[in-house]
Write a protein that binds this DNA or RNA. Structure first.
Length: 467
RNA sequence: GUCACCAUCGUCUAUCCGGUUAGGACAGCGGCCUCUCAAGCCGCCAAGACGAGUUCAAAUCUCGUUGGUGACGCCA
């Protein structure tokens, strides 16, 4: 088998969104699986809507996701001459012709067709007029009079459409720029693409592109059209339905491995396996087992995926990742060594880095800044609570060493010697330390806080106890 | 309107060329564990859109219906 070459070709008219990210992942995975090449091409021919900042943002998201590309970035706006050389070839072989119709005239044709229940299309007015460059405005492809265009889709199987359904579409605009289908075909051929996985909104472009390949006498690559991702309510994914750009997931503290795992698994499967490492995805993804039906995006499952990745990370790596989030929510620049125990205590209690950082708050602020949840405070900081807190405070003030094991032992001893149950003692202590009934094991919390801070919290809580 | 694509639990999916108590995962519910909350473990709930046909046998093949999505630009 010759080398597999795939590509991702975003247009820089917005940030990288979930759908684009998924097609990028599929193409990247296919190339990596077969040891081929994955190329990146910026389709910036829409001068009005394309912006450099979006190109930058898309590239940043690609890097964040770990989708590295081979070779140089290709910008379509820099290849106008190349496209026009192909247009000239088509003109020279009579596969294309100049058209002088105005936008208004073409629109009138469409209206007319629509009125008779036909598909709106160009009626071939200038087809045989033999217009030259001076007389024409744009260039159109001359389609065959009859026949069917068919191809075997990697995802959907055999697809065929009658050429009667198509019209002589524009391949070169009046301003000299190529249209989308023209540029895509030239680029895909020039870049040597063998496989094209894209959204199935392109399924109707494919016959047009195949006609171009045929008119140009070029080899046709394999196409695979994956269905678009739908929102929760089966509607098209839009901002209204919670569609977010990849960059936003990054800000929310998702891990790229989790997003890649989730997105790859949406519309593709490998038996019953749900969780994959990137290496496993590369190993198993061969372009088959792609699901032809639409899939709804589920951020709850994404969160589950992310939680799983977070739990599997080495603690120091997790601490390094959460560090900027801790700083961003106003908890200061904390050294990694200090974040490691926090990660250990809280990583199973949150599903993203932002949530993890937030869960650190009670342990990173001073006792005086600790905020209490009224419900827990009223319930546990009582006269009975004061008794336990006071006695335990005494024990802790002279405990040596002030370390997890010893602290835990001291608490158990207190419970045993007073003939109590742990669950009678824990609530006031927990509320004193955390401000609410949550968090990790008490001895871990105290060991992290250190003796001084622990005692300060006991003192504060004791003063808050109501009879 | 025309054309194209799609159709299994609420959601993601498995069930390779017809024969399964239709499996797994997320969510939900219940239990165990337990100092809270989680995590973990165990269990429960829950599906072949509808109608015909082919066949000994259909979720699986065929046709139709319905529903969803997409496309129909000198946007990409």
């Amino acid at each position: 088998m010759s080398e597999v070459i795939t590509r991702f070709a975003p247009s820089p008219t917005g940030h990288l969104h979930l759908g684009g990210a998924r097609t990028a992942i599929f193409n990247w995975l296919l190339a990596r699986h077969f040891g081929g090449k994955f190329c990146l091409r910026i389709e910036d021919t829409d001068l009005l809507r394309s912006k450099q900042e979006y190109t930058d943002s898309i590239l940043a998201s690609m890097r964040w996701l770990g989708l590295d590309w081979d070779g140089d970035l290709i910008y379509q706006t820099k290849r106008t001459d190349l496209y026009n050389s192909y247009v000239d070839k088509l003109l020279a072989t009579n596969h294309a012709y100049w058209c002088s119709c105005t936008a208004e005239e073409v629109e009138a044709m469409r209206e007319k067709a629509r009125a008779t229940g036909q598909k709106p299309r160009y009626d071939g007015h200038c087809r045989d007029l033999g217009l030259g460059p001076g007389e024409g405005r744009c260039v159109r492809l001359r389609l065959p009079d009859s026949g069917r265009v068919s191809f075997t889709d990697l995802v959907k199987g055999p697809i065929a459409i009658d050429v009667q359904e198509l019209d002589d579409f524009v391949i070169r605009r009046a301003d000299g720029m190529p249209t989308y289908n023209m540029a895509v075909v030239v680029d895909d051929h020039e870049m040597g693409l063998t496989h094209i996985i894209r959204g199935d909104d392109h399924i109707s472009n494919t016959p047009k592109q195949i006609l171009l390949y045929q008119a140009l006498g070029l080899e046709i690559p394999k196409f695979g059209h994956v269905p678009m991702i739908l929102g929760k309510d089966k509607q098209k994914l839009s901002k209204r339905h919670g569609a977010k750009a990849v960059i936003e997931y990054e800000k929310d503290g998702l891990l790229p491995e989790a997003l890649v795992n989730y997105l790859a698994r949406l519309g593709w499967s490998h038996g019953d396996q749900e969780l994959f490492t990137i290496d496993e995805l590369i190993k198993y993804f061969d372009g088959t087992s792609l699901n032809p039906s639409q899939a709804c995006f589920d951020d709850v499952k994404l969160a589950w995926c992310n939680a799983h990745v977070m739990r599997g990370l080495p603690l120091d790596a997790l601490a390094a990742k959460v560090q900027p989030f801790v700083e961003n929510i106003g908890l200061g620049v904390q050294p990694i060594e200090r974040l490691i125990p926090l990660c250990q205590m809280f990583r199973e209690r949150t599903s993203d880095l932002l949530g993890l950082a937030q869960s650190f708050r009670p342990l990173l602020v001073a006792a005086s800044d600790l905020s209490f949840i009224d419900k827990d405070k009223n319930k546990h900081l009582t006269a009975v609570g004061r008794t336990h807190l006071t006695k335990i405070r005494d024990i802790l003030s002279s405990l040596e060493p002030f370390e997890p094991e010893a602290i835990n032992q001291a608490l158990n001893d207190y419970v045993a010697t007073n003939n109590l149950k742990f669950k009678e003692v824990a609530p006031p202590v927990r509320t004193a330390l955390m401000g609410f009934m949550g968090g990790s094991h008490l001895h871990e919390i105290m060991a992290f806080l250190g003796r001084a801070e622990t005692l300060a919290r006991f003192d504060l809580a004791i003063s808050l106890c109501q009879d």
